[in-house]
């Protein structure tokens, strides 16, 4: 009995560990998409957060400073995406794809520059057990806060208006481009915490490919969660649960590739409308140009 309880607790604990970076990335994606910008670059933002926080923590010996630097790096990357997608009205998808490629390569290049070795950084001072707990709790707090911000505050209303009809929002006196810009940047800050969690809380180093497509799983969580903070958090927990079960299910003969494919298949099913009505914000992904 106690053994069963212990096993259940272990799975639940692992679920939280696996879900936390997904929750951060998905919340960043929700905020950005509700304002009308599809952030394909979430993966790149996770990489920027993970890499920069390790480098700064290693250089200063202070992991909290590292975490802050990671968030700044994520915001900076998001700001690039936000600038080109709002002010230059370029295609969001293509720009985000470029951002991912550049971030992955930039971090790999940075590893060689800073640590004179490819593949992985040295071990650096990490956030430790306490820091990890704080980040896990904070992810849920962030989900609740974002929910309230989007549904109860004027700015949240502005964000949603820009995601549905930026032109109407502009007419009503909301600066649609500015609102979109800051939604993407703040979304980047939230998402980068997922990267910080991976490199400084779960581990104490950065290695190439450590984000392992979590940015894309987060995009799937956004869709599966129907573009709401609470829904996306639920989806992230759901995906995290299966990631946590992976080892046990694998031993029971379930192919690991099937489990890994689950978030993507779930998103495809949701997209095709098989899981009830799913509707993206009307102007999601559409560049807005003032006429």
């Amino acid at each position: 009995m106690n053994a069963t309880l212990a096993a259940v607790m272990a799975i639940l604990g692992l679920t939280l560990i696996k879900a936390t970076p997904l929750i951060y990335a998905a919340l960043g994606g929700v905020l950005s998409e509700r304002a009308g910008v599809v952030n394909i670059g979430l993966e790149g933002i996770l990489i920027a957060g993970a890499f920069t926080s390790v480098v700064v923590s290693g250089a200063t010996g202070n992991p909290i400073l590292g975490a802050l630097a990671g968030v700044l790096a994520g915001m900076l990357l998001a700001a690039i995406l936000a600038y080109v997608t709002t002010r230059l009205a370029v295609d969001q998808i293509v720009a985000g794809t470029g951002l991912n490629i550049a971030a992955l390569a930039g971090a790999a290049f940075g590893l060689v520059l800073v640590y004179h070795q490819p593949g992985a950084s040295h071990e650096v001072p990490a956030l430790g057990r306490t820091g990890e707990t704080v980040l896990v709790v904070l992810a849920f707090v962030a989900a609740g806060v974002l929910h309230l911000v989007l549904t109860r505050t004027p700015w949240g209303l502005h964000v949603r208006a820009c995601g549905e009809d930026p032109s109407a929002a502009d007419s009503a006196g909301i600066d649609a481009l500015k609102t979109r810009f800051w939604a993407v940047v703040i979304g980047g800050a939230i998402a980068s915490l997922g990267g910080v969690y991976l490199s400084l809380a779960e581990l104490d180093l950065y290695s190439d490919g450590m984000t392992a497509g979590r940015g894309f799983i987060a995009l799937a969580a956004v869709i599966f969660g129907r573009w709401t903070p609470l829904g996306a958090t639920g989806a992230a927990l759901f995906f995290g649960f299966f990631a946590a079960l992976q080892f046990s299910l694998q031993r029971a003969g379930v192919p690991s590739e099937l489990l890994q494919a689950l978030p993507y298949l779930a998103a495809l099913v949701a997209l095709a409308g098989f899981a009830g009505r799913v509707r993206a914000p009307a102007a999601d992904g559409v560049p807005y140009v003032r006429s």
């Binding site: 690039i80 080109v84 230059l88 009205a89 370029v90 295609d91 969001q92 293509v94 720009a95 794809t97 470029g98 951002l99 991912n100 490629i101 550049a102 971030a103 992955l104 390569a105 930039g106 790999a108 290049f109 060689v112 490819p118």
Partner: peptide
């Protein structure tokens, strides 16, 4: 490091995302 090439390619994609597409 050969990653410089990928870095450049990523930036080219961002810069040209505004094509008439």
């Amino acid at each position: 490091p050969k990653e410089v090439v990928s870095l450049i390619i990523g930036l080219v994609i961002i810069a040209l995302a505004g094509r008439r597409v």
